[in-house]
Structures are given as structure tokens and as C-alpha cells.
Design a protein around this nucleic acid. Structure first.
Lengths: 306, 306
DNA sequence: ACGACCCCATAGGAAACGTCTATAGCTAGC
DNA sequence: GCTAGCTATAGACGTTTCCTATGGGGTCGT
């Protein structure tokens, strides 16, 4: 069955006239007649009664009509959906993100994205990088923003480098000193967060590689709480710069540079399934936004507007 | 766009494998590949990402999927609807009927019809024959049961002859006499019904043609009331036999034969639009039921079961 | 009553398309 | 490196589809 036949059926049903319908469809009248005959033959029933005045629907034709309309509408809508997706003018984008990305980077990014593509519906699934990778592999998310990961089935697009910075409360002795050494840090009370997170491991191995055994005083399961603890002078912490940008600007936390230790950072990438072909539609739109953005800008966008 | 392409798309999307899908659809793998290519070319977008493992949907493919399913379902349901209509196993039948037919003949007929075709939905529109004819011409009803009418756009199928019989209350002088003449009738008080109905005109001209000027005592707008009036001895009436079958059987009314007057009757026919082609589906089913029935049986069926 | 017109159906030939078999190209896994 | 499993491609064959031109039937206007 050709869709052109169904379309012809509808057009003729509407106009009650093969010649006019043919003209409207830019084919000749015999062509349209043939299509109708073919459709009737396939369905095993005349859909039209031929009269002097033209074509009238038979009972069978009337019974078939709503289904024909439904089918054509479905195809038309499907085409439109593809066009929307191609121009990314509408559709759905499901993102995965590591917690720090989700909380501190995505909001500003999505604000810009929503402004550029108001008809795209966005969903975010947050989880540790490993879990988000699994979501990606199960196709529960289309694109994920996580720390650098390796897997044969994914490809990565570098986004930005997220520095871990040492923050102390205002008025802390470190805040006044121009130079702080790693040995100084080791004597401070350190606040860690989320033992299941990769940050925990990263910071731990950082200290260990420098021969420092941190005196752990507190471990929290989220960054926000860790910041609050530092603000309340319960210790100092190594936190993602994106997570403390607001507090640094508001001067409720102070960044301290450790002079005799290498910069600690983690690469954040966007990953997607390698077998999905070229990014298309909403995913491509989002990647374009990322590409147009200065990597530093992504990482430094304030987490709260203003 | 071929429906076979859409179907192929769905099958491949389900199985993720062209070869298997082709096998399931009883075509060769290159054929199905060609269909997919044609569909992708027409939609201007790859629907599948080709991988070592087989075919995976792209975002575009995923976006198109629900519409493809909807379209296929619509066509499948449409086919089923036609099959239902052809076998009259389901569907809708809209009948028009004159009041006397609707009240006294249709119930028993529809009872049998509903038993034979339980999944056919039946609707009845009642009105005077002329009005029902208009409904038919406007296609508000598919088939109408009315008195014989002439119109270039309709064709008629004879159903039965409806006799008008003279009824009197039990114990009336006529009931005991073996013979009643038209002159006797003229001296009785007559009850007519519904001046707008064709029965009124029919009975009036009947008497006039016999040179009898009836002494009209009462005119009612429906047959049921007329029967009640006769039962209450307010007069006698000429009523359709189908309308008084129950009362005659229950002996609450008595039929009297007028010996010196011709039998008065009216032909009841089924009419349908001439331009509708051969009757199909539910209409054909109903006509078959009528055809199988003895005409006399139709007209004499008791109006109330029992 | 007759001719002009409008409708759909049909005929025939050219072009396009779909389908097949056979084969190539590619990758993964042994 | 060979095999197995996947999709893509090539070429040939048969069918279908489309066009133009024409037929046949009925209506309407003159």
C-alpha cells in the first residue's frame, strides 16, 4: 500500500472529484484513478460510488476514512518531528551529569540553552560519573558530562578543566599569608566529601603523593555541606572551583594557593555512545552551545545568576 | 513513501538487525536495506546508525519511531474496520423509519438483528416518511423504512403491505355481526390520528372515494392514543394492522371486516440512495435479514414480545 | 433535441522502481 | 589470519507507475 494512495483517497473524499483532487496533488487524473483502483483492490472493497456528479464515499469508504486520516496525520507529524529535531527547534534532550557538574555548571548552561532553544524539553539525570556512564550505555541519557572516563563504546569531547582549589574561611590565618606550603595544609583540619565520589579518591591520592597524611576531621556526602562547614570554621577543604565561585565572589570563602604543590584538577568531558553516528538534533544543538562557549567560561560561570 | 518502508523501519528498529527483520518480513536482506535507504533519503536523515552489531536507532530514528508506529496501527485498524464492515461483524447502522414502522415493526426486527450481529451498533431516527426521505438524501440515515415514495435519487426494496383494519371495542355491535357495510361505518363515530401523517390523508380519501363523509369525532397525534380511545368506546378507527396486532390477540380490540369496500393498505418499502453503490456491510446485513424474513412475518410480528 | 461540457475509465508505451542473486567490505572473535 | 556475521553494492529482470490520448456516459443549456 502506498501512502500516495491513502493521500489520494483522502483528497478525493474531500473534494468528491477525481480531476480536481488530481490537480491539487499535481498528478494527472488517470494516475489518481489508478491509485484509487489499486487501493480498492488491495482493500477488497470499493471505497467510492461513481456517480454522474463525481465520487461519493461508500459505507466502506466512510468506515475507512478516519483511519486514513489518522495514518496520514501520523506520517505528517513524524516528518515534522524530524524537521524539528534537525533544526533542533523542538524535541527532547536527556543529559547525564556528575553531581558537581549538575549543581554548579549546568544551571547557567541550561539557562542559555533554554533561551536559544525554547521548544526543547531538557531532562537531567545526576549521578556519579560511573553511574552516569552506565546510564549512557543503557541509552537512558543521550549525552553525559562527567570526568574523563574510558570505555570502548563511548567517545569524549573535552569540555573544561575543573580545578580543585583550597578554600578557607575569611579571617583564617592562611587568608592573610601570601604563600602557603603543603606542610602547612597538612597541619590543618581537612574536610572531605562523599567517600563514594571520585573527588574523594582524587584528593586523597593527591595528598598521599605529596607525602602528606591529612588529618581528616569530617566527611560529608555533598559539596554544599562541605562549604558550610568551612564557612563555620570547622576546617578547610579542597573543592571544585566551579562549586565555590559564588562564595569566593561573595567573600564568604577565601581561596588559598599552595605554592609547593602542583595544581590539582580534573578534566570534565562530554561523552556519548560511539554507535550513535553523528550527533543530531537536540544533542547537536547542545554540543554546539558547548563548543561556542569558552571552556574557561563554562567552568567559571557563576552558579547562581547575578 | 511506501508503507512497506515504514513497516521495515519498525521491524529493523525492533530487532536491531536487517537480516533478521528481512527474514521475518519474507524479503531478502538487500531489499530491506534498500527500503531503509529510500526512507532515510526521503526523510533527509539517517534513522539508523550502522554498527558492527547491527542497526541502532539514531536520535532522529527514535524521534520518528512513535509516529511510524501510529501510522502502521492506523492502517492496520483501518483494514480491520473494513473487514468488520464487510462481514458486518461490527460497525454502525443508522436507520430511518416512519412512526408506525419504528414503533410496531422495528422492535422485533431489531431484536433478531441484534442477536445475529451483536457487535453492530444500531441507531433509529423516526419521522414522517417525507422527513425520513430528506434524512436519507442528506445521508443522515443509511436506509429508511417508509411508505412507497418516489424520488429520482433513491431506490426501493418492497418490504410488506401494511393493511389498515377497522377496529372496534369488544362488545361493540359490529363485533357480533358477520357483515358490516361501509354505510354502517359512516354512521359510527370515527377516530383519526395525526393530520400531518400520510395515514390521515389515506383514510380520508378512502372514505371520500366511497362516497362516505365520516363523522369525525376525534383526532389524535399518535396511534397509541387512538387505540386507547377505541378501547374506551369513544369511537372506531382504521389503524395499521401491525399497530393493533397485540390488542387483537389480547382481545382488547376487535377487528371488523367491511364487506363492501376494497381492502385498504399501504406498501412499506426500504429505500436507500441510488448513488451509494451496492449495499455493503451493516446495511447489507440488515437487508439480508429483511430478505430472509417472510414479508407477512415482518408485518405480523407482535409488537411486544410474548 | 442536440451539442458542448464535465465526469471517470481505459489503452498503450516509456520510464522508473522494486526485488532478486551474487558479491564486496567491514569488524569482532577465535 | 581465518571465519562468521553484519550491512552495502552491483546488475539483471520483471513489474509497476506514470504520462498522453481517447472512450463512454450523463448533464445542462440553448
Amino acid at each position: 500500500m502506498l501512502l500516495a494512495q491513502v493521500e489520494g483517497f483522502l483528497e478525493v473524499a474531500r473534494r468528491g472529484n477525481v480531476s480536481r483532487a488530481a490537480e491539487a496533488m499535481f498528478v494527472t487524473q488517470p494516475t489518481l484513478t489508478a491509485r484509487l483502483h489499486a487501493l480498492e483492490r488491495e482493500l477488497g472493497e470499493p471505497l467510492f460510488a461513481r456517480t454522474r456528479r463525481g465520487m461519493r464515499l461508500t459505507d466502506a469508504g466512510r468506515a475507512f476514512l478516519p483511519y486514513a486520516e489518522r495514518a496520514m496525520r501520523a506520517v505528517r507529524d513524524g516528518r515534522q518531528a524530524l524537521t524539528d529535531a534537525r533544526t533542533a527547534s523542538a524535541g527532547r534532550l536527556v543529559l547525564g551529569a556528575a553531581p558537581a557538574v549538575s549543581t554548579y555548571v549546568l544551571p547557567a548552561l541550561l539557562q542559555r540553552f533554554a533561551a536559544a532553544y525554547p521548544r526543547i524539553e531538557v531532562a537531567v539525570r545526576t549521578g556519579h560519573s560511573e553511574d552516569v556512564l552506565q546510564m549512557l550505555l543503557r541509552e537512558e541519557v543521550q549525552l553525559a558530562m562527567v570526568r574523563t572516563m574510558r570505555h570502548p563504546d563511548i567517545e569524549s569531547i573535552p569540555l573544561y578543566e575543573e580545578a580543585l582549589v583550597l578554600v578557607v574561611p575569611p579571617g583564617h590565618p592562611f587568608a592573610k599569608r601570601s604563600k602557603v606550603g603543603i606542610a602547612d595544609v597538612a597541619s590543618e583540619r581537612l574536610i572531605f566529601f562523599d567517600r563514594t565520589s571520585s573527588y574523594y579518591e582524587l584528593t586523597q591520592s593527591f595528598f598521599l603523593s605529596l607525602g602528606v597524611t591529612p588529618r581528616e576531621v569530617m566527611e560529608l556526602d555533598n559539596i554544599e555541606s562541605a562549604k558550610k562547614m568551612v564557612e563555620r570554621r570547622l576546617g578547610i577543604a579542597l573543592l571544585p572551583r566551579t562549586a565555590v565561585a559564588g562564595e569566593l565572589a561573595a567573600k564568604t570563602l577565601t581561596q588559598v594557593v599552595v605554592t609547593d604543590a602542583p595544581a590539582l584538577s580534573q578534566k570534565i568531558v562530554a561523552i556519548r555512545r560511539r554507535d550513535q553516528g553523528r550527533p543530531s538534533g537536540t544533542v547537536a544543538a547542545f554540543l554546539n552551545l558547548l563548543r561556542e562557549s569558552d571552556p574557561a567560561a563554562i567552568a567559571h560561570l557563576p552558579s547562581r545568576s547575578g
